[in-house]
Nucleic acid binder design. Sequence first.
DNA 1: TTCAAATGTCTATTGATATAGACAACTATA
DNA 2: TATAGTTGTCTATATCAATAGACATTTGAA
Lengths: 245, 245
Amino acid sequence: MAGLKQVQRQTGVALWRQIADRIREAIGNGAYDETGMVPPETVLALQFGVNRHTVRSALAALAQEGIVRAVQGRGTLIERKERLNFPITRRTRFTAGIGDQARETRGLLLDEAQEEASAEIARWLGLKQGEQVIRLETLRHADRRPVSKATSWFPAERFAGIGEAYRKHESITKAFAELGLADYIRATTEVTAAHAATADLADLELTPGAILLIAKAMNTDLDGVPVQYSISRFAADRVQFTIEN
Amino acid sequence: MAGLKQVQRQTGVALWRQIADRIREAIGNGAYDETGMVPPETVLALQFGVNRHTVRSALAALAQEGIVRAVQGRGTLIERKERLNFPITRRTRFTAGIGDQARETRGLLLDEAQEEASAEIARWLGLKQGEQVIRLETLRHADRRPVSKATSWFPAERFAGIGEAYRKHESITKAFAELGLADYIRATTEVTAAHAATADLADLELTPGAILLIAKAMNTDLDGVPVQYSISRFAADRVQFTIEN
DNA sequence: TTCAAATGTCTATTGATATAGACAACTATA
DNA sequence: TATAGTTGTCTATATCAATAGACATTTGAA
């Protein structure tokens, strides 16, 4: 588990960024829980086989993210460490899934629009291409930290006013309930990973090079009729998915 | 979908690498399927807002990976494009899951060892810490391209000789069968994403900064007794997971 | 054959990245 | 109150990353 931590040169990814990513990950995995501190700069420099100044650049980046805080004379303290678990089941709901792990969850409506369904959206929602759909851009927080950004599409006819309902309740489940859909089922989830797009970086408070876990999900009502298709982007260092079969 | 492709400066990730990652992703998503070619360098330079030489660095990297091939006077042709779908269900098996999408799958045994179960492994396999387990390091290919690298643990007493059986059959399912376990069930899967570790980069033929989809999975026999715990690392640009509920 | 469009090559310059060394400033503890 | 251990700051140097411009070479179509 220990061993020489390695980085690669001349790959277009600066050493300080590789090291920052590794340390962030190690913190997330609880590697430094005993001391609550990152090892001294000289030790890290030795471990990664780089100059101490390079390690300092990495730690400066992590300090900028609010993950560590350096104290002269003492060391570099771990400020924040989180990895939420997000279960994916037939009853997957964001708020309920995260709810027991965070004191407070919020759902922000960033944008709302009615538009014609693209071929892909139409396929997922069982509509014809060009039929009207409502698109919501939402940003979900847990304990005041952004966790995921999602784009969702709903059949416009059936769910007119869902934007307003979401803005009020800050929850898809409650918005559905207000519009007469008491229950729904997660039918399909596709999971991929990718580098974050610029637009998502800012909202999720990430730095470039950061990784997103991307879940493309389709929900149906109890009769199996599609009610929602969504593409959710999660900050990979803050979330893991669990699939229980 | 079109719009200005964006890259960020002074983030420790070189522009040419960001651009290479975006283009690789776009190719994987079928963005250039109509022409079978990447847009001209000057067009890409305009789209990304960088100098043509920077785009050339990105394309050179992709050519190195064997994804594109530049032909003077014509353009830059797409050589390879793949994204396998990996379904996660109660009956998840690598070979069967990928089998219908690739002409040929292989499973290579990189390493085998018998060791004492760590606290985590023991918990997953329902053993006591320190009990003997067999660890296999395997590398799985589809159509001669590496797809995933996995570390698996098995209770040593019950599955003595599983390394040899895997080496022979190149399949966990068949190795289990040889040892008297005719059927098994995927009980739990945890999905995360992370930057690839150096050791995995080489085996999976990836470049640093590349993303892994990581699946931590536990399989049980039909009585619910754990038979395998594994951590599989997939090249994120070649694979997606599908969870059907 | 001609020409537009595309990739290939070269030179030059600037800023970011990484290394190296020296020393200052601060903290906790013996 | 020393002192070891830690982070903070400064200078200097070499290499990588990015931009800029000019021109050569190849291809495919008019």
